[in-house]
Amino acid sequence: MGILVIFIQKAITQGIGILYGALGEIVTEKSGNLNLGVPGVMYMGGIAGLMGAFFYETNARTPNGAMGLAISFLCAFACSLLGGLIYSYLTISLRANQNVTGLALTTFGVGFGNFFGGSLSQLAGGVGQINVPVTGAAYGKIFPGLASMGPIGTIFFSYGFLTYLSIVLAVCLFWVLFRTRVGLNLRAVGESPATADAAGIPVTKYKYLATCLGSGLSGLGGLYFVMEYSGGTWTNNGFGDRGWLAIALVIFALWKPLNAVWGSILFGGLYILYLYIPGLGRSMQEIFKMLPYLVTILVLIVTSFRKKREYQPPAALGLPYFREER
């Protein structure tokens, strides 16, 4: 029982970062843009948040947690939004290939994160270990009292605000996408930009906004890892491949934000399952670490067997749109 509670709690902890990435990517993909730059964008968000907090804490006389939180949050969001803007400009305005541009953005973003992560101390004048204790603490548990109340407290109340924000975001996104005109218009843009255009929807604007905001949200996944998950420290390549898992989760969730919530917990659980299975040798642990990828592949295969209309990706996903195409 106890171990199950811990497992669930750890799975959620692992999953939230992926959830941010996936939520952002759902918004992006609903507009017809397949942004394979999400892993890079998450690195950008993570390092930008850390740098914001770091420069604030080293320069402020008495760093204030809430201030550090606000600054790092804004930095992370803005920087990853900027990554999305590069991608948007290249693919929407300049109509570059989306897959290739996304991969270039990943190369750039991961390099960006690792470069600044590894060079920050040098660039700041050789201050040694980078950490942001004050801000890191502000991202910690927000219900310390409730968290200690048995299994319920552990499973539901032992997280920082980013965790709860992600759930709220998922619900909001669901509502916007499927219950409002803006959401309807956005889905139309992703399904058939020519139709949306003929119906008077500003396709370019929608694509830009969805892709940039989506990137901003994805970047919060990086911030989550740096602040809530790692408590305000940076390790190069620390997120590993969670960015790709975020893209996998979008498919797993069939482009629905609410599915992504429980999907992310499942992915998080699979990611750490090897730690909770007794008697696993080191080699077998490595095999278990394949699970999230294998499950994604399985989902890909199963959804391709069942060609249900509602389970398919947005019809215009990956295609550029040019109104005067003949």
């Binding site: 890079g40 590069i86 290249l90 541009t101 270039a104 953005l105 190369t107 750039f108 973003g109 991961v110 390099g111 960006f112 690792n114 470069f115 600044f116 992560g117 590894g118 060079s119 040098q122 660039l123 190069n236």
Partner: peptide, 17 residues
């Protein structure tokens, strides 16, 4: 300059863009 070698990825990214 004792900076991180990932600088090369940043440069690659910029050129590709």
């Amino acid at each position: 300059f004792k900076l991180n070698e990932n600088a090369s990825d940043v440069i690659t990214g910029i050129i590709l863009f």
